[in-house]
Design a protein around this nucleic acid. Structure first.
Length: 104
DNA sequence: CACGTGACCCTAT
DNA sequence: TATAGGGCCACGT
């Protein structure tokens, strides 16, 4: 059987994030059945090759903060109509993605 | 095979 | 409400 790497599992989930929505690193880890691996999800995304054309800008941390060293992430999200709060974080209450069973 | 790194997150203080 | 500390584990060297 084909062995999927951890990275590929992460890529699969990132590809599912709908336009105009965001998910947290912890959510991805949880969906993968590895709720303690949020940090590894972040590691993978920070090394994601651009040719995969994944919407990795739709992933933020649990506070809604965008990735350090990647200021463009904010404008990419705003271009999708995602609202930001005064402190510069994403309004998670409004934009978080909660996948339904058939989406999983 | 051992070790360092890190786009995270929870708990206790 | 804020900050500090530690667990977590994929990946490259």
């Amino acid at each position: 059987m084909e062995q999927r790497t951890f990275s590929e599992h992460v890529y699969d989930w990132v590809a599912k994030i709908p336009y105009g929505k965001v998910v947290t690193y912890g959510q991805i880890a949880f969906f993968m059945g590895m709720p303690r691996s949020a940090r590894q999800v972040g590691y993978v995304l920070s090394h994601t090759p651009s040719f995969l054309s994944l919407p990795c800008h739709r992933v933020v941390n649990r506070l809604g903060a965008t990735a350090p060293g990647w200021p463009e992430q904010r404008s990419l999200l705003q271009a999708e109509g995602i609202a930001f709060r005064k402190n510069g974080t994403v309004d998670l209450v409004q934009s978080i993605w909660r996948p339904t069973k058939d989406e999983k």
